[in-house]
Every structure is written in C-alpha cells, then in structure tokens.
C-alpha cells in the first residue's frame, strides 16, 4: 500500500468511526458537515473527498459490515467446503457477530424505523447490491449441486428472497432480548432451513411436472 492510499483509508475510517460515536453520544445526526468536521478537527473538504452526505456515511457502514463479514467467512478454511445452505447460514451467523459490534449504533438509527415492505432506507442500497451478488453465487452453486431446484422465473427471484430474509433476521435481532441473542441464532437456523427446503426439489415440482404432462397429453 502506498502512503497516499493508506492515509485515505484511515481518513475514511476516521470519518465513519467519528460519525458512529457522534450518533452514540448525542443520539442524533450532526447538524451539518461543517460542525461535524470541526469537531473532528478535520477540513470539511476531506469529508467530501469520500462522502457526499451523512447518508453516504451510513451507507458505508453497511458496506463495511458486509466486507468484514465476507473476510471473516473466507478466513475459515472449512468455508470453501460448505454446501450452499451452510454458506448462507455461515454468512448470517458471521454477519450477526459483526452487527453485534455496532449494536448500539444500529439501535439508535434503526430502532424505531419500520423496516417493512419495500421502504428500506436508501443507505441499504450498496449493501443490498453486494449481498445479492453474494447470494447469486450461492444460488448458482446450489443449482449445480442440485440443492436448489431450477424453476423457471422463480429461480431468478431467489436472491431477492434471500435479501428479504437478511432483513428479517436484522429486524428480529434488533428486537431480540434473549441472552447472547440465542433466539436470533435459532431464527437464522430455522428460517434458512425452511428456505432451502422450499428451494430444493420437492413434491410440488413433481406435482407441477405431472400436471403439465396431463395438460399437454390431453
């Protein structure tokens, strides 16, 4: 790494950390970038070098969490030998661990936001895109190993479904009050099992196939 990129890296992280601690300490967003950078003893222009607004910082927090998760996952030797189901499980368990480090911040920002329907806060976009990339990897692998049944139209929607599941887990975790978030662990385990049982080849496929056959051979 050159001197320059290293520096920029720390500046960027400094802004993110500064922003998080500001929220944690005051419970609200800084009034302006000017005020924020002044408190950080930093030039306002440095902030704009990396972020256009506070929204962009929030977005970066999500992406940072995602990147850390993937890094932690890939550092485990066994990860490569996981099945698709286990990969998704592994992702969610590691992700929740990463979230735990920032729980207060996340609660402060999203504790009262209803994360329902299509109205996800816009700062999730970057994370969503990255996750869907990751998820399509899982789906493709799953199709290859026949863990996931190929179904026209539906299969393309699986990434989207997994994203909804990630949001479900996040909501569940925010409200979880069990010791060590044990209930979230159970929720992940059970929901992923259900999802993969549904995506796998099942009676419904045979039924559709049979119905199609009857219809066509009439």
């Amino acid at each position: 790494m050159t001197e320059k990129t290293k520096n920029s890296h720390t500046d960027k992280n400094k802004i993110i950390d500064g922003y998080i601690s500001y929220i944690l300490e005051t419970g609200s967003e800084p009034v302006s970038v000017f005020k924020f950078t002044k408190d950080m003893k930093m030039k306002e222009a440095v902030f704009y070098e990396y972020f256009s607004s506070f929204g962009a910082v929030k977005k970066a927090v999500w992406e940072l969490i995602f990147d850390n998760t993937i890094q932690a996952l890939e550092s485990q030797e066994i990860y490569q030998s996981y099945t698709s189901r286990e990969k998704l499980l592994g992702f969610l368990f590691t992700w929740i661990e990463e979230l735990k480090n920032k729980r207060s911040y996340l609660l402060a920002v999203y504790g009262n936001v209803s994360l329902k329907n299509q109205s996800y806060p816009s700062e999730l976009k970057g994370f969503k895109a990255k996750f869907k990339d990751f998820a399509s990897g899982i789906v493709n692998e799953g199709k290859e190993s026949e863990e996931i049944a190929e179904r026209p139209y539906l299969t393309d929607k699986y990434q989207e479904a997994m994203w909804l599941q990630v949001m479900f887990v996040f909501r569940f975790w925010l409200k979880d009050d069990s010791p060590a978030f044990e209930k979230t662990d159970a929720a992940i385990e059970k929901s992923v099992n259900l999802a993969f049982d549904l995506m796998g080849r099942s009676a419904i496929d045979s039924f559709v196939d049979f119905a199609k056959f009857l219809f066509q051979s009439k």
Partner: peptide, 21 residues
C-alpha cells in the same frame, strides 16, 4: 432438526473464541 455446522462453529467461537477445528 439438527444444528447446522455453521451454528456449531458459531457456538464454539462464542464460548471458546476458537472454532472446533
């Protein structure tokens, strides 16, 4: 249903700060 292996790994990390391997 049985615990998945990732959950086993997670449980180990939680208590021992090390994976089973």
């Amino acid at each position: 249903p049985p615990l998945s292996y990732p959950l086993v790994v997670k449980t180990f990390n939680q208590y021992f700060k090390k994976g089973p391997e």
